[in-house]
Design a protein around this nucleic acid. Structure first.
Lengths: 116, 116
DNA sequence: AAGATATATGCCTTGACGGGCATATACCCA
DNA sequence: TGGGTATATGCCCGTCAAGGCATATATCTT
């Protein structure tokens, strides 16, 4: 699964497709890649379940499929626990600095919450 | 970054280290890999910033570093938006089925919320 | 049907990477 | 100091995947 996204051009294709579905020619023009390269990468992506295509005349419209991304997210989960512990430690440290502030400028520190 | 975790043995090493720090020999025994292989993979992981090591006598204790995992998580973010839209659609579909249930068993469907 | 466009596929070459093995380096202990 | 243990590194080889190019296939237009 990770071998698939390890290839930079394939990541570029995925980043394109996350915006909207595209034909092979559109991808080709956006990424300045030779057409056979695009088709080959798309085949890899299709075989791995990252994308699917529908026929539209002589074109093929490619779009993302969610499952592999969810699997990658699931794989990250244990590590997410690990690094959020690190972030908690960092926050605690910063909080302590807040309690005994140094005579320096104190810019906004709290970052908007999120998955992190 | 993804090329690093694309290698199965390296993923195994990371999965080990997420539990606790380990020496090379411990990793070697857990994964049944020849020692040079372990050292080589650890070097790749160290160079890429996935792990760091401290010296403990003749041993090196390796542990995870959070940054690359956070970067992978950040890369996933746009796709997370995409697939959660898909999940919303699925939920809506299931909700509609709830409104006009078929005469079949109806197991618990709602999954506990999370990052997804 | 003919030519043009869109996409896919096959072949070849090259480079990167992992495995295996020997060996180097560093540290410990007696 | 010598021998044993822990880890790293260098070398060779096989494999595999991506790039480049030609070409096949399908569809559109006139």
């Amino acid at each position: 699964m990770f071998e698939i996204v390890a290839e930079p051009n394939r990541r570029a294709i995925l980043n394109l497709l996350v915006l909207s579905q595209r034909s092979v020619g559109e991808i080709e023009r956006h990424l300045h890649l030779p057409q056979p390269a695009v088709s080959k990468h798309l085949r890899v992506l299709r075989t791995a379940g990252f994308v699917e295509a529908t026929v539209d005349g002589q074109r093929r419209l490619y779009r993302l499929k969610p499952e592999p991304f969810q699997q990658m997210d699931a794989w990250l989960e244990p590590f997410r626990r690990f690094w959020s512990a690190h972030l908690d430690a960092l926050e605690l440290h910063l909080d302590r600095m807040d309690e005994s502030p140094l005579p320096t400028a104190k810019p906004a520190r709290r970052i908007k919450g999120g998955v992190v």
